[in-house]
Write a protein that binds this DNA or RNA. Structure first.
Length: 136
RNA sequence: CAGGUCGGCCGGGCGAUCGCGGGGCGCUUGCUCUUUCGAGAGGCAGGGGUCACGAGGAAAGUCCGGGCUCCGCAGGGCAGGGUGGUGGGUAACGCCCACUCGGGGUAACCCGCAGGCCAGUGCCACAGAGAAGAGACCGCCCCGGUACCCCGCGCGACAGCGCGAUUGCCGGGGUAAGGGUGAAACGGCGGUGUAAGAGACCACCAGCUCCCCGGGCGACCGGGGAGGCUAGGUAAACCCCACCCGGAGCAAGGCCAGACAGGGCGCGUUCGAGGGCUGCCCGCCCGAGCGUCCGGGUAGGCCGCUCGAGGCCGCCGGCAACGGCGGUCCUAGAUGGAUGAUCGCCUCCUGCGUCUGGGCAAUCAGGCGUGGAGACAGAACCCGGCUCAUAGGCCGGCCUGGCCU
RNA sequence: GCCCCCGUAGCUCAGUAGGAUAGAGCGGCCCUCUCCUAAAGGGCAGGCCAUCGGUUCGAUUCCGGUCGGGGGCA
């Protein structure tokens, strides 16, 4: 369990990160990452569907991913939202390969994310500034 | 000792580093409140420290039963659903205990949706003569007719004729003992009886109904007598009988904060729309809004939320399930959802290698090293059950067989 | 939390108020036709009716328990 300020808690947070963030897939996980405000603490969310296994297996996968996320939190304490979706092979993966996939996917996502974040310091979230009121 | 049967219990242990949840007690930061302007009992939000606690026997499936909450306390009838030997336990149950009956087992013990087809209706394919107050296919028997050979008797003249018996065929009738069909054929066996047979009659047995006596709270059991002579199966077929069932569910329900925007149409406010959460009718009650379409808004926090038909120990009552009394203990409350990550040692099972000891040997016992395995499974308002999954291990009662004393 | 539906041939589906040997289409295999294929025609195989018990003379059908799949409401 992460502290409350480091958790993605609402459905809106999840869908925003999944839809507007960059995506990286590996054998065991699919990782979505998006930049947020630098003053905002980094947040993590996990999606583990019933296809992965029964409740015991799903909890174990979530705990391991959460532990891996806690390591990233020490490097990037602010300005990052991450959603990790566990795939069915994650059920039988051991700790080393699961953490390896996670770390590899995160590195790939950050490579695509950081130059974009430098070019446009504010996140691309504000759609309603100039051309917003388009009536359908 | 071997095999079997029944029941109870455990569900890896210890430690190190880094982390999580709610709670107790200090520290600290900001805001707020009070203010005698020194500060301070408080409130809200955050940081950090420390202390103990933190998933299961099934938390599961959601198959039953309750508590709790709301629905203006819920009456009667029909429909609908459930249960189904008897007695008890319980808050209640479709659960548990004891007993009865039926079946299985040498036994301990196990299994059983175990009321009613003499209230009615339906169904019983194929086969078979006939399938529910049935039936004559073969067979058996009697009567009548007819045919020829053989046989017997009589007549006669060597031909032949008549009668009888036997056999075949045709017709009429009797018969449910036998064959055959079927899951099932309208009691069994022996005798009397008869043309052949038949509960037609008799003895015994099985079964049915009724009565009496004894035992038991009761289901029922034991004994005796009478009657009529026999009544198929299926109710997990409709149904009948007895008993039980108001509905929804913690996303119940309540409080706080916050956002928004109304409008059209239809029905209705004495004549009553609509509602009282499965359908219909009656009764009773509430009652001024209700239905529908278009448009708009919200997804936050707190309570409920864990002390309860609670756990453990002792005594008493009871065959038991269980109950009573006394003492003692407090033991999870998450909300994108808390127990994890990385290791070390021990324990248990097991493969391989090696060593030691016993033995001719198969092999047995033990030590060491190394590798593997440790299940089923995650609380979500809370309990009582049932069912299903489950590596491995511990304890006890009883039965049968063998050996020894 | 509550409620409902479905498991039949490799696939998509029928069927049955309980009755003998469970059907259809597509697919598969073989044969005919053709130089070869496709098409067409003919033939064949393939099912413990999800599973385990029970009721019945007899169960895919009726009853109960499991397992798996799908859906709905708040």
């Amino acid at each position: 369990m992460l502290p409350v300020r480091n958790r993605l808690r609402t459905s809106a947070d999840f869908s925003h990160t999944v839809r507007s963030g960059v995506r990286q897939g590996r054998r065991n996980v699919v990782l979505y990452a998006a930049v947020s405000d630098e003053a905002q603490a980094s947040r993590f969310g996990f999606i583990v569907s019933k296809a992965v296994g029964n409740a015991v297996v799903r909890n174990l996968v979530k705990r391991r991913l959460r532990e891996a996320g806690a390591e990233t939190l020490r490097d990037r304490p602010t300005g990052l939202d991450v959603v990790v979706r566990a795939l069915p092979p994650a059920a039988s993966a051991d700790w080393a390969s699961l953490r390896g996939d996670y770390a590899s996917a995160l590195r790939g996502a950050l490579r695509r994310l950081v130059p974009a974040a430098e070019g446009r310091p504010v996140s691309d979230g504000g759609p309603g500034s100039d051309s917003g009121t388009e009536v359908g």
